[in-house]
Design a protein around this nucleic acid. Structure first.
Lengths: 91, 91
DNA sequence: CTCATAGTTCGATTATAATCGAACAATAGG
DNA sequence: CCTATTGTTCGATTATAATCGAACTATGAG
């Protein structure tokens, strides 16, 4: 889990929107985000988030539940996630 | 100045190193960072940092002095820069 | 067993980004 | 005026990343 990796993962608007949704709505399956891209594209973005350590995924029935790795992020990069979530909130 | 833009700019290790240097050493001309890439490549990275609003540049004699736009960043994205600089410090 | 649902993987395409060298521009110094 | 220094711009190349459709996998429902 690297800083550059996390920043890169979050620099994509679609991935950032996923993370924001997880932060405010809590864990959700991939289908719940209403992403307007092909399934394979969505899967790619979830993979990036997973591989950079931003989210975790657990299979549950036929779906995969995503959740934010908040504790890990907060301990490794204190304040970073909060700053990002807060910065993107003013919408 | 967008969040995604700033995150993108800082997700590149070379650009992050420039920003770290500016944060700790204060303003410096392009040549002072000891970047091991071609001049044109360095110029490209400075441009990205400039265009995303992370740094400003002022010509001074034959050189261009770079400085961090800390106030702007802090007011637009409170805590973000600090979190990033702190996270990358543990070196 | 069959079928629908939820995602993944694969391969291909397209779009972005990083990188370089060469030529250029601006300035300061002699 | 000539030259060195500092950085920019341009064009080309290469590397990464985003995107899609099609085929696949796993699970649960009937």
């Amino acid at each position: 889990m690297t800083l550059s990796g996390v920043l890169y993962a979050l620099s994509d608007p679609l991935r950032l929107s996923i993370v924001k949704s997880l932060a405010t709505q809590g864990e959700q399956p991939c289908g719940a985000f209403g992403l307007s891209v092909a399934k394979s594209t969505a899967s790619h973005h979830f993979r990036v988030l997973r591989e950079t350590g931003v989210i975790r995924m657990k299979p549950e029935g036929t779906q995969h539940i995503n959740s934010l790795r908040r504790e890990d992020l907060d301990s490794r990069f204190p304040g970073l996630l909060d700053a990002i979530l807060q910065a993107s909130e003013p919408v």
